[in-house]
Design a protein around this nucleic acid. Structure first.
Lengths: 160, 160
DNA sequence: GCGATCACTTGCATTTCGCAAGCGACTCTG
DNA sequence: CAGAGTCGCTTGCGAAATGCAAGTGATCGC
């Protein structure tokens, strides 16, 4: 078992932004956190079928690293020993403002499939969004908070 | 000349977070933006000596991509034709909330060299920080807004 | 028992990265 | 106006990360 939150050695700089990017600066980590935070995903397979098509070896690697960073935990499910439930820690939940700002930035400046009404509501009620994320985790409420803004040019992978 | 803001082809998903990460999801892009935004850096060499040690080929590549994404512009300097001044666009300036939240997250959960007093002030006056970033750009004020929290394994700056 | 499910691992080809060196345009100095 | 220095990149190359397909072992439902 891995003990989270250890003060890893040799950072390239003490700048907090640099440290954030060492932990989260890649194409996948924050997407996994998004899936946990707003889509209610919990298992390896959930993430795998998340839409963007992460490779399983990369997914396993990122889950390890995020766990080592104390951002999420792996909890084996009681009723089914095959399954592992991944859960955000407090540190992971606390990334909600980061995800929110990234979402709002893209919604303002890029062509996304996020409905303007939803974006507007989020932009005007940031605190409420953060509270809701927190409540969902407290109540173990895994219903999707937001729809998957999928369905763009990328066609769904028909493998099943 | 490159026309920015074009709706690049073939995204892996229409999710705004996914789009943000395709543009910014790596270890270096947001550091360059940090240097532009709060350190007042403008030239290739500035970024190169920024402290984290980015390789010049990677730096050139990121500058290209960020320019192609409409996040910054390259402006040759009048008095010295060797120099190029890189400047944030409105789209780039608008990343300030993202940088701020990443900074605050790391300051809350990791051991950083950001002075607690500075962090506290930022956390309590987010709007003021954003306004200041905007003002600095409007007035072409390139004085460092924040000290470089540099010098690797978190040394206390006890003397001055 | 038997096939399906789940969470990974492994092997391998491709891409990206980090590092050092070099290059062309320009500027500064004597 | 020759030569040295500066600036913004390129190039080459070995190392690491990534993407893809296939496989593995434990577990579960029937």
């Amino acid at each position: 078992m891995i003990m989270p939150g250890k003060p890893k050695p040799s950072r390239r700089s003490g700048c907090p932004l640099s440290i954030s990017l060492e932990l989260l600066g890649d194409r996948w980590s924050l997407l996994i956190i998004r899936d946990l935070m707003v889509r209610g995903f919990r298992t390896f397979k959930d993430f795998q079928n998340s839409g963007e098509g992460i490779a399983t070896n990369i997914l396993a690697d990122r889950l390890d690293k995020l766990q080592a960073a104390g951002i999420l935990n792996a909890e084996p499910e009681e009723n089914d020993a095959r399954r592992v439930n991944y859960c955000l820690t407090e540190k992971g939940i606390d990334l909600a403002p980061v995800l929110l700002e990234l979402l709002l930035w893209a919604a303002r400046h890029e062509q996304t499939s996020a409905p303007p009404a939803v974006v507007k509501k989020l932009a005007n009620n940031r605190q409420q969004f953060l509270k809701e994320v927190r409540r969902r985790w407290r109540d173990r409420d895994a219903t999707p908070l937001m729809p998957s803004f999928e369905l763009n040019p990328i066609t769904k992978r028909s493998k099943h």
